[in-house]
Write a protein that binds this DNA or RNA. Structure first.
Lengths: 221, 221
DNA sequence: TTTTTTCTGTAGCGGCCACTAGGGAAATCG
DNA sequence: CGATTTCCCTAGTGGCCGCTACAGAAAAAA
């Protein structure tokens, strides 16, 4: 489904499950994925509205009509950028939640990885989802990213409830508050990375943040 | 000094410490402070760039030239808004740091007040300084607000160092990390308020956050 | 080769941006 | 009263915004 984001949009080109036969006309003169990555970096650095279409075509090194032919419009391009960002850079929390044995271990790892990802040299600092549309006047873009943030915290909350159910966390744990607390710490780390904090600074910050998480099944009261 | 921000800009109007004699020509037909407050709310809600001059004149209920005559330009108006915001809404941390006996008590109070201020009904949620220029393409505006944020955390760090010196906090306290941690929590609370978190949700979050602060002079190790 | 299909560059669309010139109205001063 | 000072409204500036029509170039298919 939704094969309308591939290279060719000609409905008759790809015949079934065949090995992607070459489309008929003149092929695109640039690599779509490379251009998308350039757009991602631009949006990540400057945000949705502060990145103009002419900014995009400059960093992607393509003409304006090529951008519209390949990606639809600015909004669709941004949606695709957010999707790619989520897979490539923004999924460290999801991965930690899925792979670590407990919510606490997952958060410990996620905070450590956040410190690294948010300060990686040669890349924009901080999180695209948090900052790219912070004060965007396009309400759809705002709402879309807001939903993404809320979903992340909801996923963490579910994981905490699981641990409470299995006894890995105390029975009186306020899962919602603990999830929101952790989300707030990550969001604050992203803000501080944007403001120039170093990886080491974020790591020491995260170490303090994680120390409130109750160990094993000892009740908090 | 710098009396150029008052109502009248006529250099000969106010004679010394006199009771502000009325300026000569036709008086302004709107109340400057009221208009400034309206501009503050608009910038707070939508951010610097997403608030256009025509947005401003609409909510301030004045003409475009009146805005420029009274406030200079959009940038100067925003600067003044930020100054007023800092005094009226954004100084709860400073006040807590100044009035509470210990850094811990101050942070406890500041986090509680942040939960209230960031979710006050009838006002934009979250912090203007954090979000109003998040992805602003004007570098001066960005830098100015960034400095303000860093200064806030630096003030907290100084207060923590004082408490370490007096023994109110353990000698091995990492003042920088603890200050950045607390700043990150406040920044995350602001983000969550923008995303719709309620006051109660922020308060339970803050309660967790403050629980990592060491009590009295007991060493952490 | 001719035909067909698609991409690419130029040039320009209407619309909003921040901002300002200039004339007339309104209020105070002498 | 007249003179002076200041404000406010209308209208418009050039510039950038996202976006697109059109024509020609380029490559595959027949």
């Amino acid at each position: 489904m939704s094969s309308d984001e591939g290279t060719g949009r000609s409905g008759a080109a790809r015949t079934g499950a065949g090995p992607a036969r070459r489309p008929r006309g003149r092929p695109r003169s640039f690599d779509r994925e490379t251009a998308l990555e350039k757009a991602l970096l631009a949006f990540w650095e400057h945000g949705y509205e502060a990145t103009s279409v002419s900014d995009l075509t400059r960093v992607m090194d393509i003409g304006v009509p090529s951008l519209y032919a390949a990606f639809g419009d600015k909004r669709s391009l941004f949606d695709e950028v957010v999707r790619v960002y989520g897979v490539r850079y923004g999924s460290f929390t999801d991965r930690a939640l899925a792979e670590e044995p407990t919510a606490r271990a997952a958060v410990e790892r996620a905070l450590r990885e956040a410190a690294a990802v948010y300060t990686e040299p040669g890349r924009p600092h901080g999180c695209l989802v948090l900052h790219a549309a912070a004060n965007c006047s396009n309400p759809e873009v705002r709402q879309s990213l807001r939903e993404r943030r809320r979903a992340d915290i909801a996923a963490l909350e579910r994981r905490i409830r699981d641990d409470v159910a299995t006894g890995a966390l105390p029975a009186d744990t306020d899962a919602g508050a603990l999830a929101r607390y952790t989300g707030a710490v990550i969001q604050g780390m992203s803000q501080q990375a944007r403001d120039g904090a170093s990886r080491e600074e974020l790591e020491s910050l995260a170490e303090i943040a994680v120390s409130v998480w109750p160990r094993a099944g000892t009740p908090t009261g």
